[in-house]
């Protein structure tokens, strides 16, 4: 298939692409996405160039393409996997699971399973590019700082967390629950084959109550069963609950506050640019983002009261 020489040559090529100055402020997964787009957009030109004697004259183009993707993923994995290990082992406190299920499983067992789950997710192309969002949000402690302020203010969100969702935990633990749900909910983006749902299936009460979300719930239940079998330390209810972070609050007002927050932070992460320079005359990054979402809350299915509170927090703290 590929010789050592082919691999070394491709690695050299990919390394040079990765070191391009235009990627200086980009996260590894975004760079990967960019380089895959580079391959797609310059398909013909790359095919002509990379099959010349200077590169891989003895390989068919299909193999070159596969080698490009393989080496690119390997190189990105080298950068991202240690970071994900830090996120899963250091940034999340799993003790809330023990408190919920009244057991005392070692933290590292939880972390290890979540880490492996993340690695599984990262094998899927459709998840890799989306995983950039939780990666940025968790590694930059965005959730922690907001939760701290939410409990300092004790307004709508704190009420929803403490009284409605009945979470009697300290803020750090609640931040961990949101981070956990954020990671688990990524599985909701897994592309699965069309289910052979019987056409004659009758409309049920859930369809009427929760609209589109009812169908999504079925999909997520399937995903939990099919893709989360390795998460043996986590009860299925908790995993399914986390998947609700993908649902719209407008369709289902019973979605737990932690899931609603996880959804908000996931979408914030998509547009989040760490260490962004703020121009004079512009609002700060997070204030801008929450300000925009006050108009977009219906589109994304956010809880508007949460968005308004998070907007106030970002404005008060110049975030």
């Amino acid at each position: 298939m590929y010789s050592e020489n082919h691999i070394a040559k491709m690695r050299d090529f990919i390394t040079k692409l990765l070191s391009n100055p235009c990627f200086a402020n980009e996260t590894p997964l975004l760079i990967e996405e960019n380089l895959l787009l580079f391959l797609v957009q310059n398909y013909t030109a790359l095919k002509t160039t990379l099959t010349t004697h200077q590169f891989f004259p003895d390989l068919p183009w299909r193999d070159i393409e596969n080698l490009y993707i393989k080496i690119l993923q390997e190189e990105i994995d080298k950068k991202i996997i240690p970071q994900i290990q830090i996120i899963t082992f250091k940034k999340i406190d799993y003790n809330f699971i023990n408190l919920m299920i009244h057991r005392s499983i070692d933290q590292n067992n939880f972390a290890d399973q979540i880490f492996k789950f993340c690695l599984e997710l990262l094998k899927r192309f459709e998840i890799r590019k989306l995983f950039d969002s939780p990666y940025k949000i968790i590694s930059h402690n965005v959730i922690d700082k907001y939760i701290e302020e939410i409990f300092a203010k004790r307004s709508y969100i704190a009420f929803e967390l403490e009284k409605v969702e009945k979470l009697k935990f300290p803020p750090e633990t609640i931040a961990s629950i949101i981070k956990f749900k954020l990671i688990i909910s990524m599985a909701g983006f897994i592309r699965t084959e069309v289910d052979d749902l019987p056409l004659q299936q009758k409309m049920n009460l859930a369809d009427i109550k929760f609209g589109n979300s009812a169908m999504q719930r079925l999909h997520y239940e399937k995903i939990v069963k099919q893709f989360m079998a390795g998460l043996t330390y986590f009860p299925q209810e908790i995993l399914f609950d986390a998947m609700k972070a993908n649902l719209s609050f407008l369709d289902d007002p019973t979605i737990p506050a932690t899931c609603r927050l996880a959804k908000v932070f996931f979408l914030l992460g998509k547009n989040y640019k760490p260490n962004m320079k703020i121009d004079k005359g512009a609002e700060t990054q997070e204030k801008s983002w929450f300000g925009l979402q006050k108009k977009n809350y219906k589109y994304y299915g956010f809880d508007i009261k949460m968005i308004e509170e998070l907007y106030r927090i970002s404005a008060e703290n110049f975030w």
Binding site: L17, N20, C22, F23, L30, E33, N34, L35, L37, F38, Q41, N42, A45, L46, K129
Partner: peptide
């Protein structure tokens, strides 16, 4: 990201 930052 419908277009790459890199040009050929």
């Amino acid at each position: 990201n419908k277009s790459s930052k890199l040009s050929f």
